[in-house]
Design a protein around this nucleic acid. Structure first.
Length: 859
RNA sequence: GCGGGCGUGGCGGAAUUGGUAGACGCGCUGGUUUUAGGUACCAGUAUCGUAAGAUGUGGGGGUUCGAGUCCCUUCGCCCGCACCA
């Protein structure tokens, strides 16, 4: 190192407190990470799920955004024009809760949180294009959402209907199912009522088939997520048909096993089925049973482990083939909102029906057997739902299950008493929320004209600011003026819709708005086409179904109405693991010095210290029991605040920790020792940079080879998102460079290392790159530097280590030239003394040679 | 109950198509530098054994010249859905 000033700087410690803000503002000033839609470079859109502005960044965010950041920076180095934006999923309940609890305005609370969290993200040095920042709570965003909603309405994909909701009579609001605990509102504790309200729906079921089929094209998605969506969509095919009922009416049922129709021995309807309701109206016992079923819906059923119970009605249903009169039951295990709300009971071949038939002593008939000879084989303790051959079924006898299904459906259709049908588990998406802090649904109710969309030139429909949260209920509904307006069609007095949209709507198209942000429309299709689909989407597994399914639906819906030309928004999806931490529990000794279980409390990581392999609470000096490593949560007191870590160790150490050790899809246990180790590594790279010596001469082939192998391997690892492996390789190169004597190869190894670590620890990389510039002759930011070139010739070793086995057991290793032929390797192997000792004169029957790998002697 | 995933040192985890198990990190042990602590550096660290060697990827079995990897079986843990006809 000729530049003594720089040399001296590397002798001192790397100071993130100074370096981090310096480079963060250098990137900002140079607009290093602003994406140019008009660039000629190939495009890459790297996106992490945008956060809800709860107030503080947590470690999960840090991990999520660090992964995306490394990929974004890497892609930039590889010559891509990268779009890596950040925004805020800013509508939602917590803001209204804060308003009620603290008397603040949801908007003020949210915007303050955004500012605080933005500052935190900036301190971590993420390569984000802040010029495209958006918050879903701003009219500049939700106004365009209103416009898209109207487009979908006009395309027939939005409709209103009455739907049953969970109504909290105290808070005067609708509750999500998750907010109903033991039949009571989670906040008010009041008994929740079922109410029928007019609600807005999106026709996601129109796309059920497409959304299911589309999963097959999503190669870049985890199988787990695809499977979860498949189950959620829940396609099944079968026969829907009607029984003639003894009261002269018809009763429609749905079955996926029409092949077993000859095995039907009863018919069962749900407790809220019209037939059940009708009977309940005149029969007190039936009424009591139905109400019991409803109450038992959630908790009681679980307690009773799903015991199948029924109420036998006076009705019978006529079997379409045999003419037999089957008893009709009201049963607790039949659901009204699936299929037709009624089933034919085939006890032999359906486990629920089997249990029910056992309870009520109904016939259990065999109509499927593994072999025709087993036609009269009795059943064991459970139903046989598997495949086989049809028996005891008249015209179906001897057929396979598949053929019999087709035959029965064919006959039902020919004789016009039933139809082959597809039934979906997926329901239309209810998007109405009776809340303030969300996107106003842009419609107007007119007595004369009905429901009328707000004309687009009157968008956005802006939320009123002057609202109060002192009373329960929807502030929009009781606002003195906001809802009063005139009808766009007839001009008469009319009322605004006071429901707001589910916040999942906000997150169903934000990636389009990131790509293109015109003022006058939601996005520019041509600009969107340049960036979309998102090349890599990263987020938590908790969004596997809802967010990811809704975003897929919304994208398909926009394609359907011709606004975009692609169907799937996210080409690749990665679901990262959680950040976890040990838990600490202190057991308080009683007067006699005994510890008793109930007297215990949790303590946080910064309240404990380690001494002699044990853990103690600092304040009390009591020994702490180290509990399970679980997700960081306030209630378990095992949260580590990113700000404190940034303060103590700087952004680079924290980033390095997030990438080290655990594979990104698994949980990452946070530990003090771990972050300290990362900090040591950062300092180690810093010191190593001081070893650059421009006067050094000569080549170190081994180190050069290691350098080029590392370039190739780290690139591969980053592209596979295997950051933990990339980190391991960088440690290896660091160690190799440290050990090597000064040479040109070593200088190259060091500067290459700096480039390779720059996506991960960018502040140190910039600082060192800058200091080395005069000596090495480069210029500019390392963030703008290209990924190092690989010399393919150096990837190949010229000597390899060959394992020598005898009967598959390792006996010796030898060094041989790369590509040595089989005879040479065999001869080398047999010349090994250890191998000869192992063979001990036995006859050699066979020698297996795997070139460049091993020799196995069979003797 | 159904569906999916995972079991490798004290810990997190590596390991192309089956081909040297334990890379890399943490921790730990011993040593060097330092007035001390910390830092840094060197050596060691799967198990048993003084060694030669043997054993070893949750357990059992199989295929193979060769199995962490493939097959069967069994145990344990985690996640998702939950009476979906």
């Amino acid at each position: 190192m000729t530049d003594t000033v720089s040399k001296a700087r590397f002798d001192e410690k790397f100071e993130p407190g100074q370096a981090d803000p310096r480079w963060q503002s250098a990137w900002e000033k140079a607009r290093t990470f602003e994406a140019d839609s008009n660039s000629d470079k190939p495009k890459s859109f790297v996106l992490e799920m945008f956060p809800y502005p709860s107030g503080r960044i947590h470690m999960g965010h840090v991990r999520n955004y660090t992964m995306g950041d490394v990929l974004a920076r890497y892609k930039k180095m590889r010559g891509f024009e990268v779009l890596h934006p950040m925004g805020w999923d800013a509508f939602g309940m917590p803001a209204e809760n804060a308003a009620m609890e603290k008397g603040v305005h949801p908007g003020g609370w949210t915007r303050q949180n955004i500012e605080a969290m933005k500052a935190q993200l900036k301190r971590i040095g993420f390569a984000l294009d802040w010029s495209r920042e958006l918050a879903t709570c701003e009219p500049e965003y939700y106004g365009h959402e209103q416009s898209l909603f109207i487009d979908l309405y006009e395309a027939g994909l939005v409709y209103r209907r009455q739907a049953t909701v969970n109504w909290d009579p105290v808070d005067m609001t609708v509750l999500a199912n998750e907010q109903v605990i033991d039949g009571k509102g989670w906040r008010s504790g009041a008994e929740v009522e079922k109410r029928k309200l007019d609600q807005w729906f999106l026709k996601i079921t129109d796309f059920a088939d497409e959304l299911l089929d589309g999963l097959g094209s999503l190669d870049g998605w985890p199988d787990k997520v695809r499977l979860m969506q498949e189950n959620w969509i829940g396609k099944s095919t079968g026969l829907e048909f009607s029984f003639d009922v003894s009261n002269g009416g018809k009763l429609a049922v749905y079955s996926t096993r029409p092949d077993t129709i000859y095995g039907a021995s009863f018919v069962a309807v749900a407790a809220d089925h019209p037939i059940a309701q009708e009977i309940a109206a005149s029969d007190a016992e039936a009424k009591a049973f139905c109400e019991d079923c409803k109450r038992g819906g959630t908790t009681a059923a679980e307690i009773e482990a799903g015991e199948k119970k029924g109420f036998k009605t006076q009705l019978t249903a006529r079997h379409p083939f045999t003419g037999e009169a089957l008893p009709v039951f009201i049963a607790n295990f039949v659901l009204m909102d699936y299929g037709t709300g009624a089933v034919m009971g085939v006890p032999g071949h359906d486990q629920r029906d089997f249990e029910f038939a056992t309870n009520y002593e109904l016939p259990i008939l065999r109509v499927v057997a593994s072999d025709p000879a087993d036609a009269d084989k009795p059943f064991g303790k459970e139903a046989e739902a598997g495949d086989g051959v049809i028996v005891n079924s008249d015209m179906l006898n001897g057929m396979s299950v598949e053929d019999a299904k087709a035959k029965v459906i064919g006959r039902a259709e020919a004789e016009a008493w039933g139809n082959g049908t597809t039934v979906w588990r997926l329901r239309d998406w209810g998007v109405s929320r009776q809340r303030y802090w969300g996107t106003p649904i842009p419609f107007i109710h007119c007595d004369a004209c009905g429901v009328v969309p707000v004309p687009k030139d009157q968008l956005p429909v802006v939320l009123p600011e002057d609202v109060d949260f002192k009373q329960p209920g929807n502030p929009l509904l009781r606002h003195p003026t906001w809802k009063h307006t005139s009808c766009p069609k007839c001009g008469e007095d009319a009322q605004r819709e006071t429901d707001t949209l589910d916040t999942f709507v906000d997150s169903s198209w934000y990636f389009l708005r990131f790509a293109s942000q015109p003022d006058d429309r939601p996005f520019d299709p041509e600009e969107v086409a340049k960036w979309l689909p998102v090349e890599q989407y990263i987020g938590g597994i908790e969004h596997a179904i809802l967010h990811l399914l809704y975003a897929r639906f919304w994208t398909r819906a926009l394609k359907h109405i011709g606004q975009i030309n692609f169907a799937e928004p996210f080409a690749s999806l990665f679901t990262q693991g959680m950040v976890t931490h040990e838990t600490y529990q202190v057991f308080v000794p009683d007067d006699k010095g005994q510890t008793t279980l109930p007297r215990s409390y949790m303590v946080s990581p910064n309240e404990v210290e380690r001494r002699d392999g044990k853990v103690y609470e600092i304040d009390s000096g009591l020994e702490v029991e180290v509990g399970r490593i679980i997700k960081m949560s306030k209630s378990k007191k095992n949260v580590v605040d990113p700000d404190a870590i940034l303060e103590d160790f700087g952004a680079d150490s924290a980033r390095w920790f997030m990438l080290s050790d655990s594979p990104p899809e698994r949980d990452l246990p946070w530990s003090v020792a771990g972050i300290e180790g990362c900090h040591r590594f950062v300092q180690r790279v810093w010191r190593l940079c001081g070893a650059v010596d421009v006067d050094a001469q000569g080549e170190n082939k081994d180190l050069a080879r290691k350098t080029h192998q590392t370039i190739a391997a780290v690139a591969q690892d980053i592209e596979a998102l295997s950051f933990n492996k990339a980190v391991a390789r960088l440690y290896e190169l660091t160690a190799a460079a440290e050990k090597a004597a000064p040479s040109e190869s070593r200088n190259h190894a060091i500067v290459t290392l700096l480039q390779l670590v720059s996506p991960m620890i960018p502040h140190l990389a910039e600082e060192a790159w800058d200091l080395l510039a005069p000596a090495l002759g480069h210029s500019g930011l390392i963030a703008d530097a290209p990924w190092p070139e690989v010399d393919e010739a150096l990837l190949v070793e010229d000597e390899v280590t060959i394992a020598i086995q005898h009967m598959g057991k390792l006996r010796d290793t030898i060094t041989a030239p790369k590509g040595a032929d089989k005879d040479t390797l065999e001869a080398l192997a047999l010349s090994s003394e250890k191998v000869q000792r192992s063979i001990d004169g036995k006859e050699i029957r066979k020698v297996i040679v795997v070139p460049d790998r091993l020799v196995n002697i069979v003797a």
